[in-house]
Write a protein that binds this DNA or RNA. Sequence first.
DNA 1: ATGAAAGCGCTAACAA
DNA 2: TTGTTAGCGCTTTCAT
Lengths: 337, 337
Amino acid sequence: MSSRATIADVARLAGVHPGTVSRALNRKTESQVNPETVGRVRSAAKQLGYTPNSIARGLRTSSSMTVGVIIPDLTNPIFPPIVRGIDSHLAPLGYSAVVVNTDGSDQAERLLFESLVQRQVDGFIFATGHSGHSIAGEAYERGIRAVMVNRDSRGVPFPAAVGDDAQGIRESLHHLWNLGHRRIVHLAGPPGFSTSQIRAESFVSECAVLGIQGEVVQTAAYSVEAGQATMDLILERPGPRPSAVVAGNDLLALGVYHSLRTHGLRCPDDVSVVGFNDMPFAGDFQPPMTTVRAPHFELGAEAARLLVNQIEHSILTALRVVLPVELIVRASTGPVA
Amino acid sequence: MSSRATIADVARLAGVHPGTVSRALNRKTESQVNPETVGRVRSAAKQLGYTPNSIARGLRTSSSMTVGVIIPDLTNPIFPPIVRGIDSHLAPLGYSAVVVNTDGSDQAERLLFESLVQRQVDGFIFATGHSGHSIAGEAYERGIRAVMVNRDSRGVPFPAAVGDDAQGIRESLHHLWNLGHRRIVHLAGPPGFSTSQIRAESFVSECAVLGIQGEVVQTAAYSVEAGQATMDLILERPGPRPSAVVAGNDLLALGVYHSLRTHGLRCPDDVSVVGFNDMPFAGDFQPPMTTVRAPHFELGAEAARLLVNQIEHSILTALRVVLPVELIVRASTGPVA
DNA sequence: ATGAAAGCGCTAACAA
DNA sequence: TTGTTAGCGCTTTCAT
């Protein structure tokens, strides 16, 4: 395992002092050393196959060039694009990301957070924000640098990169309104998440604007199962059924598909459905899903940028970067029957 | 940022020598120190909120408790489960995974590999194996510990955890045979990957056994686009068309869906399709996809186990762990017309 | 422009 | 059982 040649070996071969080698090999200090010496050091390094030991450097500089990325679950399809977006910004700067999954457990998150602190990560990107998110608050008090991505934690003053949830819901509603829908239910995500809250709030206010008879029904989780269970309830209760549902995200929308199917109802003929996120392959579902595309990759990249600004320049660029979203109309929405 | 109290602070507070603190706080050496002292050290540590600096420890022990995971692309839906499987085995042991994406570029892979070596990772898990995989060969020669997951690199003697590709193809073919299909084409993955090769080979040999008129057509990539383009070619050439296609993976199968649709053909009425992997949401496609489920999570966990055995005990447990797969019959396959 | 020397925080071999 | 000492490989201040 590992790089064998050390800076001392290079120094010996180049006939200079180790300190000089260090200076010659670092961009920032290279100018302090004679160009000719730099050349000698470089070729000695190449000859020995020298590569710096970043652990040793990290100990000395107390920076690990590593950031911790805390997400609920990598197998939720919105996270891979976010993670890749993060990485796309970090990698060229020499940072690595260590991503860990909490599976929604605060306790797991706390453990993972502490273990990453021990590893001297230079900062955190949290995709786990929610209203009682004490870990973020704690991080802030300890002076640890961090940013939120996708969701934010109410009351925690870290910068955040989020999608324009309100706009997405507004566009969904306009689309549905144009198709003639006037009785619509919103399957809201579980409480405590900024995404759930903002989407539900803008659903309510936009329904009022458009004169739509809107109803908000809470789900227990952002999952297919929760979407199906909740929709089952809606379909099995007495009274007229909605002609359309605006789901809190694509997983919930998929659950709605399932529920509709088991009730012998067809989408969009009987009920139109709009999702949120435009997760990968949403266009391959049955029917292809009309949904709001959130720019997950860019959200990740933006979050990384915000974090690096904090780490390297102690700059808190913007408290909240809101990226635009776009309604993708496919086949799960149609004119009201 | 970061843990402020050092081992020296704890030593001072507990009235002992730093060396003793180190021993008291490490499981393996704890027995060498007086239980009463251990208690004193522990409470001093707690009082100061001491957490060990793992960079310093890493420098001293020349181990980073980190492993590098090299994959093509996290947004390919088979990788998140693999990564989570890896993590499920690693995390309890105190290891972290750093995952990087090559996007299929050998050059990118080499760069990422070197940067992880610099970071003193204790080993690698490669999900990027292919026939000319020089990086793995190089790693082996440098004495770097590694394992392959999902695919292996022909000729590189690292252990590998893979699915039983041959079994999967055999089951697909039996299923199709039972439905009456006798003219079947296999959309093979691109050359150079063990998965492509093994699947194609067992397709050919099993067709011979069953008396099926089988044909192998190569694709350019494991992607939806490549699947669609290749199927377009097949449908547009003269002569009878196959009644079924066995796709090299689910992405290719999805491409086949698209091609069928643009040609006004229906699945499974006109052409049956079988995928491979059972990627997330394969059951929600139109039609729900019949496919071979590969145990990706377990593959990841197994790979991690193999790697840790090498790292901690220099044991090369098994050269090749082959995990069973299972045909999941859904609605993309039906009786021949 | 370069050398000398100290030290980041920890562990481990040796001594007592 | 505990203290002493040295040093992992690097950067950086201070001299020169």
